[in-house]
Design a protein around this nucleic acid. Sequence first.
RNA 1: GGGCGAGUGGCGGAACGGCAGACGCGCCAGCCUUAGGAGCUGGUGUCGCAAGACGUGCGAGUUCGAAUCUCGCCUCGCCCACCA
Length: 841
Amino acid sequence: MTAGTAVRGSRARRFEPASYERKWRDRWEREGLYVARDDAAGEKHYLLTMYPYTSGDLHVGHWYAVTGPDIVARMRRMQGYNVMFPMGFDSFGLPAENAAIDRGIHPAVWTSTNIDRMRAQFRTTGCSFDWSRELASSDPGYYRWTQWIFLQLYRAGLAYRAAAAVDWCPKDQVVLAREQVLGTERRCWRCGTPVDKRDLEQWFFRITNYADELLSGVDGLDWPEPIKLMQRNWIGRSEGAEIDFPVTLPDGSNERIRVFTTRPDTVYGATFMVMAPEHPLVSVLTAPERRTDVEAYVSAARRQTEIERLSADREKSGVSIGAYATNPMTQEQIPIWIADYVLMGYGTGAIMAVPAHDERDYAFARRYDLPIRYVVLPRGGSPPEGEPFVQHTADEVLVESGEFTGMPASEAIGAISRQLADLGLGGPAVTYRLRDWLVSRQRYWGPPIPIVYCNEHGAQPVPESELPVQLPADVNFAPTGVSPLQSHAGFLRATCPVCGASARRETDTMDTFVDSAWYYLRYASPKNDTRAWEPEQVREWLPVDLYTGGAEHAVLHLLYGRFLTKALRDLGLLSFDEPWLRLRNQGQILGADHARMSKSRGNVQNPDDLTAAYGADTVRAFLMFIGPWDQGGPWSPTGIDGIHRWLGRVWDAALPATDGARDTPGDEDLLGTGDEMTRALRRATHVAIAGVTDDYEGFRFNTAIAKLMELTNAIVREREAGMAGSRGYAQAVDALLLLLAPVAPHIAEELWSRRGRPYSIHRQSWPIHDPGLAAATTIELPVQVDGKLRDRLVVTPDTPADEIERLALGSERVQAYLGGRPPARVIHVPGRLVNVVTPRH
RNA sequence: GGGCGAGUGGCGGAACGGCAGACGCGCCAGCCUUAGGAGCUGGUGUCGCAAGACGUGCGAGUUCGAAUCUCGCCUCGCCCACCA
C-alpha cells in the first residue's frame, strides 16, 4: 500500500475485486506460494483432481470441479501439511484429430493453443495449483514414458496381441472407428456400404490377471459406495463350475466343449447346448446339410453391434448346427445350437442350456420347441406352469438327477462340481465379466505403440533407448478413414532390433486411457528425462491421498489406474497397492436446460462474464454454495448477488479505519484465545471454526459457507453495537478471514494485508477450535408432550437432570395437557429435549 | 429387465432418530435517497382474526418421538443392460 492509495480515500476503500484479484494471483505465482517442495516440512499430502481433456475453453463445470479440492488444498496447507496439488492436461484423443480433418489445423497446434487458453483460464479461478509440475500427455517427454510402460507390460506378458473384431468397410477396405459407423443399418460414414466385422490383430493389456485383486482391493478404499459398487459389478465375479461336454468330430476324433455355469446343480436338466456364433468349434462341428443356414446366421451376427445383440426384449434367435454333445451326467445326446445371446467374450463362449431353470434358455427352448426338464424344485413342490423355476430359496432339492436326487440344491452345487472334477470333466470355476483392456487405436493422435514387425522375428519391442517413437508431424489428415500413420513411409520404416533387417513399424496408437492410467505418478518428478518417475520422489508423494473427479469415470479410468499400479508394483517399480486412497466425486453442472453441457447444444456456460462482473471469489463461493458438491445440478446464476453482497459485508466489517495502519489491535496475537471478545462473539467464532473445518474436510462446502455467513452476521451485529474498535472484534474478524481464505483467497489476502497482517494469509496457521469457548452459557431446551412441542426451558448447561425434569413438569403448558394426572413417562435426552408422555398414551 | 440414488417452502437447499425449513435467493412492508435493478431494517411453510391446527411424494409399520429406520407403491435421475 502506498500513501497515495490511502489519500485517495473512499474510492480505494470500495469493494472492487477487479482492483486486487489479479495483483494477488500474480504475486502468489511469482513467489511460488503453491509450489510443492520435496524437502518441505510437514506431513505430505498429495491432492489430485482429474486432469481435463483439452477441449478448448473452461466452463462453469471446470470451475466447480476444481474449486472444491482447491479449498481442501488451501486448508491443508494452513494446517501444516506439505501439499502437492498439481494440474495438467489430457491432450491426446480424437477431437484434436477431427479438428485437423475438419479445419485443417494440426492436432499439435490445436492442442497447444487450447492448453494455453485453458491454463490462463485456470489461473483466473485463483486455484492453488503447482504449475511447476504441469504436464501434457501428448508431450513427447510424457508419451515416451507411456511407451516405456507399454514395454514393461509387454516384457511381463501383460501386453499381448490378439485378434479382435473391429468394424470394417468392405468397399473402402478400412477399419472404422465406432463413431464412423452410422445408423442402425450400420453403414460406412463415407460410402454408405453396410459395414462388416473383421478380426484384426489388436493390442491388449491383461487386466483380467488382476480381476481378483481389483475386486478385493475395493473394500479397503475410502471411495463413494456407489463407485465401489460399480467397480465390483464391472469386474463381475461369478462362482460356479466348468463342465466338459464330450463331442465326436466328423473325422471320428473326440473333443470336448467346455461350458461355464453358475448352476452346476441343474446339469441333469441340460437338454441342449448353445455356442456363441464365433465359437471356434462351430465350423468344425456343423453338419454338411446345416452349413448354409449356420454360415448365414454367423455372418448376420457379425454385422450387429454388441449393443444390438444384447439389447433387451429382443426375441431369441439361433440355428441348430446338426451336431450333438453328450451330457456328462445323463449320458444323453443333446443337440448343439448357436445363438447370439451367448457371448464369445464371457465364460467359455458356450453354455449348457437348462431351460427349466434359466429365463433365456427357457425362451429359446419355447421358440424352437426344445425339451424342458425340471430338475430342481421346492421340497414336495411341482414344476411351475409356463415359466422356468429360477428362484433360489433355502429349501430346494434335486429331482430326476440320478444319484443326486433328493439332495438340497445348495449342497448339490459343490457335490456335482466335485464329481465332475473326479471324472476329469471340469470342476469348480470362477469367471469374471471383466475383459482384457483393448488399447489399440487405429488413430494418429495418441502414443505410437513401440513395436516393430520383422519378417524373420515377428513383433519386436522397440529398444528403450530409441524411445520415444515420435509421431511424425508431416502427415496427411485427409479423411481416408485410415490412420495417417499407415501412409507415412518414413514412420513405417524401421529396423528389427534382433537382426537389423528392415522392419515395419506398428501404426496403432494407444488408447488415451493409457495416458491417464499413470499421470499421477509423473507429477512426483515431472521433469525427469531419464526415467518415468524418480523412485525417491514417488516414495515421498505417492499414493495420492485425495483424488477428485467426475463419477463418469467410475469404472474405466479408475479401474485402469488401479490395474496399472498393481502391474507396476509386481514388476518391482512401485511399492504400494492402490493409487488413490480417498476419492470424492463432484456432481455435474448441467446446462440451464437441465441437459449435459455441450457445444452442440449451445448450453455451455462460460464463467468469464460472471468473473468480470463479480470477481473470481464471488464465482467460487457461489458455485460452492448452490448445493452439495457431490450433487451438481442445472446451472443458474440466481443468487449470485447474495454471495456478492455477503463478501461486501465481509469487506465492510474487516476494513480498518485506515489501510495498513495497524490501528486494529491483535496483530501480535492473530486469534488468541478470544478472551477479549464478547461472549456471543467468542461463541460464534469458535462454533464457526469447528463447523467450517469439519465441513471443508467432509466436502460440505455449501454448509461451510452458510456458517461463514453466520459468523459474518454475528460480527456485523457486534459492529452495530459499537464494538468495532475492540481487540475482541479484531480477533473475530481475523478468524473469519482465515476461515474464508480457502473459499475466497483474493479478498481474504487483500483484507489481511489492509489490516496490516503479515503476508500471506495463505501461510498462516489454521485456527484451532476451543470447545470450551464454543459452549453456550445457557441452552434452550424444547419440552414436548407426547412428542409435540409445547414449551421451552432456558437453563444453564450444568442444570441437573432432575431439576430439568421438575421444571418441565412444572410448566403451565405441560400441566394443561397432563390435566393433573402424573405423567406415564418422562423422557429426558440431556442437552436435547424433554418429552412428557401422558397416561392415556 | 436388474442395481444404486433422490423426492422437504415460490426457488437453491439445512436438519448425530429429538425445536422441520439453517444459510441464501425471491417476494412483501418500512427507512434512506432527486432517483434506483443500490444500501439498511423487519417480515415471509400452509390454513386461521386469534387460540390453534396441519405440514418433508403416497400408504402402512417400528418408536415416548420419524424428513431421517423398515415394508409396499408412485415419480425422477444415474449406472449396468441376454454375463450363463
